[in-house]
Design a protein around this nucleic acid. Structure first.
Lengths: 325, 325
DNA sequence: CTGTTAGCGCATTCAC
DNA sequence: GTGAATGCGCTAACAG
């Protein structure tokens, strides 16, 4: 493995000169530059980024934490975050927390060890204090940690209201809402707003609470089947894309018609809502924009730019499918 | 940021002693160990992994390249790879190549810069030579690069045969096969075997070729609609999960019944095949095992264990759904 | 058992 | 313009 010293020797110059020539910092005569380039080619020299990292005390790596990479929303989010980070010259280290707070903590620790320059977190199983005590940049999706940790998220309240109003307009009288347990996470807001609107309209609301970190398809489907057995008379459903689709399948399985007898609305609006038949009506998050904001906000912190907003909330929109009238 | 030297000074010992105490290498008297631990706590010392990386010339990071993170198969694969790497004490750096060979090359370059200890690649848009000239560990999924780069994959030939035989048994006479252009990739084998079996059985086969790196849902759906317009009389379809589902939707949209009039079989057998109604019959890959083999094989190379197999092919199995008889 | 020293490979002073 | 020297923080080899 050729080092910069080998190149210097080969070119008959000093290491400093090689460094300057290669990084374009400081003046180097065209003549010696040629010699250096030739030596580089001859030795097949590539700078060792580890040494550079140590010197700069930075790696150019950003950690991204999600509860489950194999989930329509988070895989889409991770994809767009990675693309935007790449575009800005950073690399992405990914972590599936799958609800295990130890994993979340392990990755946070990498901040202290300087392995990552910052972290974007969409995983929320770990205590907030663990986040607050870190000294390096962190950006959170959908969860308010407190000062120092900017929050990026969709307008869940708006989404909950839109879904509720659409179900009311569709004439629903008894609806199911599927939610997850996630303390302090903005997603909860859509459930409370949804419920409130329903109450105001005199529509009965039932709740089904799933473990926040269980994104497993079977768990959703089985839970839904059981629920339908106990409450066969619901005429509307609101839940995450996967819960909504699980519900749709369970309903169709029982020979109930969608949307005539049961209306269904999902939240997230990922590709999978367009893969089912009929297409799922869903409140759609702008995941790409969400990803870009996360990256830009985090890099503002990493590169110490001023005036980083603490709170950025994105509008959602209704994507009409065939599961509502 | 406290360094090891600060700890040594605080504890009134030498840096070597601190290093030994913290790493459990070499003997340290219980007494001085106490003092060191106390100093560590007092200063809130955390070892700087960058320095360690430089010394060891390793980072404990493995690069994972996939064409599209937001694709049912690759997101599932990436998830399981990350989990297995984590279990074995490594971190995962992810790369979406989205068909751009420059990105693939950029990440390969990280091997030379020592940013990653090895790479697992499921992305195949870049020329094979670029891979072969690297000196550090690489493991490939579904593509044969040549000596030095172990191949892990599913038995695509077996899958193609199983699908063909099932469609024949279902009485199909004119089938569509959706494939992707991917030179040298094992997935091609399932298409050739499928076609061959069909020919032997006197069943007509039509081909629809999608760009290998286009995993976009709309592209699939629109392509399928157009195809159905030209060939409304097909009675069987075989393609990746997404292509199969796109086909199913397009068919249902035209009021054609599945499986009575058209039988459909997917390849991959991811969760999404269970989200559609009826459930998609599909050839199922064992993604978790695939991921674990990739990780184990790569780490065998990284940690220089002997006798690493060059070729590991996993069986696939038929997952019966409601899109075949 | 423990302190000191010499690199790991690079970027950056500071003299020349 | 350029070379030599210094340090980033840590580990391992070497004297004590």
């Amino acid at each position: 493995m050729a080092s910069i010293r080998d190149v210097a020797k080969q070119a008959g110059v000093g290491v400093g000169t090689v460094s300057r020539a290669l990084n374009g910092t400081g003046y180097v005569s065209p003549d010696t530059k040629k010699k250096i380039e030739k030596a580089v080619r001859k030795l097949g020299y590539t700078p060792n980024e580890l040494a550079r990292n140590l010197y700069r005390n930075r790696t150019g790596i950003v950690g991204v934490m999600v509860p489950d990479l194999d989930h329509p929303f988070f895989s889409c989010l991770a994809k767009h975050i990675e693309m935007e980070l790449y575009r800005q010259g950073y690399k992405t280290m990914i972590c599936n927390t799958i609800g295990i707070s130890d994993r979340e903590k392990d990755y946070l620790d990498m901040l202290d060890r300087n392995m990552v320059d910052g972290i974007i977190t969409g995983a929320h199983s770990l205590d907030g204090e663990e986040y607050l005590k870190r000294k390096k940049p962190i950006v959170s999706i959908d969860r308010e940690f407190g000062p120092g940790i900017p929050l990026i998220g969709s307008d869940h309240a708006m989404g909950g209201r839109m879904a509720a109003e659409l179900l009311v307009k569709n004439g629903c009288r008894k609806v199911l809402q599927v939610s997850g347990v996630a303390p302090g996470v903005a997603a909860q807001e859509r459930h409370s707003v949804f419920k409130q609107v329903m109450q105001e309209q005199g529509v009965e609301t039932l709740d089904m609470v799933m473990d926040w970190n269980v994104f497993d398809w079977n768990a959703h489907y089985e839970g839904m089947e059981k629920f339908l057995g106990r409450h066969p008379d619901i005429d509307g459903v609101f839940g995450g894309d996967m819960a909504a689709i699980a519900c749709m399948n369970a309903v169709l399985q029982k020979g109930i018609r969608v949307p005539e007898e049961v209306k269904i609305i999902g939240f997230d609006g990922m590709d999978v809502t367009r893969m089912v038949y009929p297409r799922l009506t869903a409140v759609r998050q702008n995941v790409q924009l969400l990803a870009e904001l996360c990256v830009n906000t985090l890099l503002d912190l990493v590169e110490e730019r001023k005036g980083v907003p603490h709170r950025q909330i994105l509008d959602v929109e209704m994507q009409f499918g065939g599961t509502t009238l």
